[in-house]
Amino acid sequence: MADKVNVITIVGSLRKGSFNAALARQLPKWQPAGMNITPAPDWRDLPIYNADDQNSTGFPATATKLADAIRAADGVIFVTPEYNYGIPGGLKNAIDWVSRVQNQPFKEKPVAIQSATGGPLGGGRMQYHLRQAMVFLNAYTFNTPEIFVGMAQTKFDEKTMEFKDEAGIKFITQQLAAFEGFIRKLTGK
């Protein structure tokens, strides 16, 4: 067996009880033997992107840290809600910051996407917007299976936030296994 592929999760929600954060925390349970999933550095204290600030004081430490983590990882998984049919502004702002870093970290980086929402579509509209942003950054975005966790409140344990949807777990397990293959194909690791 080759070295494990190192994958980081970037969560698009900040709230404590977030279904997406809960899902990201539990991904290691379903990771294939050849994958090691860890959380990316937190992006919550990033200021709003402003090129003037970048030019006068450089990148905030948080942006540099996040960019370094993405660059060092073999792959990235976004686990994020959909806000107003789109990408949460905080997450997009984090992407906007790291996209300006030299040696742009998403370039040719394997990326997979997961989303959970309270509604029936499970974040699908957000995912296709995020994919479009990833085209600009020239990431390699993984195709199928896609993970859309709809009606999230019925699929997580109310107290422990454990994800208990059997069908969802099956798809996630399949996605992670296929994502490992995708990463190995693209990175040769």
Binding site: V135, F136, N138, N143, T144
Partner: peptide, 20 residues
């Protein structure tokens, strides 16, 4: 192009990124 990219996800093509 962005609609076509979306369809190509469903049929699992490996879609080239940039330059567009």
């Amino acid at each position: 192009q962005y609609h076509l990219r979306q369809c190509l996800i469903s049929i699992d093509a490996l879609i080239f990124g940039r330059p567009e």
